[in-house]
Amino acid sequence: MRYVLISHEKIDIESCINKVKSDSAGAISSFIGTTRDEFNGKKVIKLEYEAYESMALSEINKVCDTIESKYNDIKHIVIIHRIGDVPVGESSIVIFISSAHRSSSLEAVHYAIDTIKSIAPIWKKEYYSDGSIWKGNCESCHYH
C-alpha cells in the first residue's frame, strides 16, 4: 500500500502509523520533519509552505517507485507533506515505511527525505519579526 498526500491539514501521526502496520512487517521506520523557531539566530514567527501539487505528487511517487524496486521487503509507504501555514513545532513532512526487515525501511526513509528535499517542487517561506524570505535547500539550488 502506498499513500502519498499534499495536505493543508495538521498531520495525524497516529493514523500514519496505523496505515503502515502489517503483520508481515518486522519494522516501521519513520522521519518526522518539524518546523524550527530560529534561523541563524533570527526568531521565526511563522512558516508557510507552497507546492506545485501535481508535480510534487509525481516526484514523491517516483521516490516510492525507486524504493519499491530497490527493496523487495517493503510493505507500506506513507508520505504526507503539509502546505499552507505550519505553526512552529508542528510537522511539515512525515514518512512512514514498513518492511519485513529493519534495514530496508531505515535506508528507504533516509533516501526518501533526502530526495524529496532536493527535488520535490515545494517551497518554504520563513517569516521573522522584521521580514520574510523564501528558502532554498542548498542541495537543490542548482549551483552548489
Partner: peptide, 30 residues
C-alpha cells in the same frame, strides 16, 4: 518543468500551447 518533468539546465526544447510549463525556483520542502 514541462508536463511535470524537469528540463535540464540549459536544455532547449520546442514547446506547444498545450504543454504545461512551470518555472521552478530552488526548492525548500521537507
Amino acid at each position: 518543468a514541462i508536463n511535470l518533468e524537469f528540463l535540464k539546465r540549459d536544455e532547449d526544447r520546442v514547446i506547444q500551447s498545450t504543454d504545461e510549463v512551470a518555472i521552478i525556483p530552488p526548492v525548500s520542502g521537507g
